[in-house]
Design a binder for these strands. Structure first.
Ligand SMILES: NC(=O)c1ccc[n+]([C@@H]2O[C@H](COP(=O)([O-])OP(=O)(O)OC[C@H]3O[C@@H](n4cnc5c(N)ncnc54)[C@H](O)[C@@H]3O)[C@@H](O)[C@H]2O)c1
Ligand SMILES: NC(=O)c1ccc[n+]([C@@H]2O[C@H](COP(=O)([O-])OP(=O)(O)OC[C@H]3O[C@@H](n4cnc5c(N)ncnc54)[C@H](O)[C@@H]3O)[C@@H](O)[C@H]2O)c1
Lengths: 231, 231
DNA sequence: ACGTGCTTGTGAAAGCATGCACAAAGTGGG
DNA sequence: CCCACTTTGTGCATGCTTTCACAAGCACGT
């Protein structure tokens, strides 16, 4: 490809940066709770577990919110990041699949604190429908479209068994939900423009196992083996 | 630590590849269940939701396990990836914090199927200790060291409240657990050589919110605005 | 008003990751 | 045995991320 079409190059915050903003936000809120007024990139970076140059570059994408010689004003930065992430508005979330995991999520208090409100619970099991979980009635999945429309849901969380996940995802999309968080161990197929993120515990464990095995293989004879094997 | 030893450039599989291997593995196992014997990079890539060139490059890091003109033998590839990920051995997992989430994990059947065995449950609440969850006795967190030693735990999962997570992590590390999966919304501080992965639902939702807001901002006047803003 | 000391914001370099495109290598039919 | 066809494995170009290193900017004390 030589002449790359004009590519309007939307005001872009790099994806890697977006993924770290919530981490900074949390660290900042902890500082705020402790009454700290300003913080240096060094201190905030250390609280967030990243390199300070990276932190500064990340924040520079949002604008110039620091003061040289001083640092960043905590409260102002909290506001700027919140705004950038869209947390100054309220997001209604629906959870589909009220089993072990769905119930844990529904009962979890930590979401409401940050702009997310669980607005609907959906399940296919007639025995489940009508029950009250975390002060919400579980509705039948067949009512998905209605529920989404009437409660203004814009984020869908899928905690159904793997076999049902694609179907639920498709229905979410058809109902106008363009942001999906998927816990089922399947690759979801959705149209362009729909944003799917997955949380997959099995995968995380497998990655841990890979590194653990690496460590175990090498222990003691690491240097020698690595050296030899390259010859 | 800091003083990077010569680093003999260990036979390295890129981290991005490692993170995808479990996805390929799952897709392959689905094919296997359907009785498929061989699969092309194109087909497997599509099942795994990635580009086929990427898939081939990923697999090439494990060795040359394909046959040109034919594809990959499913069973053989399953074995090779499993071996590379360390799934041919058994990993004993301990869960600390048997609340909403810890219980959901403990009751989840999907781990055992892939080399992971939940070997111990730990909690600090006296009312919880002694109860039986998923056919395991909940032990008191004070026994962490004993439990880790006696059950051979090598992976620790943390589902305690945020405030307790660092303490539990430190104790896991001191007991010799060098792989930790953390669900609590805090940045854990651990010595070098210890591998921590985090699963953070709040962060995932916030990333979804960011993109959702982007879409909403731009809708309708996207093209014009993007173009104009660059001038 | 000016110098000192600290910290930000950002070029520039190096390191990773992605995806194209194609030669090399295998299969199967004639 | 050879040819047409398929699909792998990988060199290369491109773009994204991280990190270094330092000039520019600001606060504060004198
Ligand atoms: N529980 C865990 O710790 C855990 C861990 C990792 C992954 N997961 C994954 O999360 C998902 C849920 O796990 P779980 O343990 O809660 O399972 P579960 O069986 O306890 O719950 C699943 C729920 O989904 C409902 N359901 C089934 N089909 C549905 C449909 N079409 N529409 C709406 N609801 C439907 C069921 O009635 C049930 O209530 C699974 O895909 C699982 O693989 C769970
Ligand atoms: N439940 C969810 O859906 C969800 C979602 C996102 C994040 N999280 C995070 O996961 C963690 C657990 O969430 P939860 O909803 O299960 O909380 P929970 O309060 O239901 O359970 C926490 C459990 O940890 C135990 N505990 C406290 N201190 C301990 C210690 N020092 N050692 C061992 N156990 C200890 C408590 O006794 C309790 O049983 C929290 O950090 C939470 O922020 C949970």
């Amino acid at each position: 490809m030589t002449s790359r079409p004009p590519r309007p190059r939307e005001r872009g915050i790099p994806e890697a940066t977006v993924a770290r903003l919530p981490v900074y936000l949390r660290a900042l809120q902890a500082l705020q709770d402790r009454g700290t007024l300003t913080v240096s990139s060094e201190a905030l970076a250390s609280a967030a577990g990243v390199n300070s140059a990276k932190l500064r570059k990340d924040l520079s994408h949002l604008g110039s919110y620091g003061t040289r010689g001083v640092g960043y004003e905590v409260e102002y930065l909290v506001y700027q990041i919140s705004r950038e992430l869209g947390l100054t508005q309220d997001w209604a979330v629906a959870i589909a699949g009220i089993g072990n995991l769905g119930r844990a999520l529904a009962n979890y208090g930590g979401f409401g604190t940050r702009g997310f409100r669980i607005a609907a619970l959906l399940d296919a099991d007639p025995a489940m429908v009508g029950q009250s979980v975390a002060s919400l009635d579980v509705r039948h999945i067949d009512n998905l479209e209605d529920v989404v429309r009437s409660t203004g849901v814009s984020i869908g969380v899928i905690t159904t068994p793997a076999a049902s996940a694609q179907g639920v995802a498709t229905r979410f999309v058809q109902a106008g939900v363009a942001s999906i968080l998927n816990f089922a161990p399947v690759v979801l197929n959705v149209p362009d423009g729909v944003d799917v993120r997955k949380v997959d515990l099995s995968i995380e464990l497998q990655i841990l196992a890979f590194h653990a095995q690496r460590r175990a293989d090498g222990d003691g004879r690491d240097a020698e083996r690595a050296g030899l094997e390259l010859m």
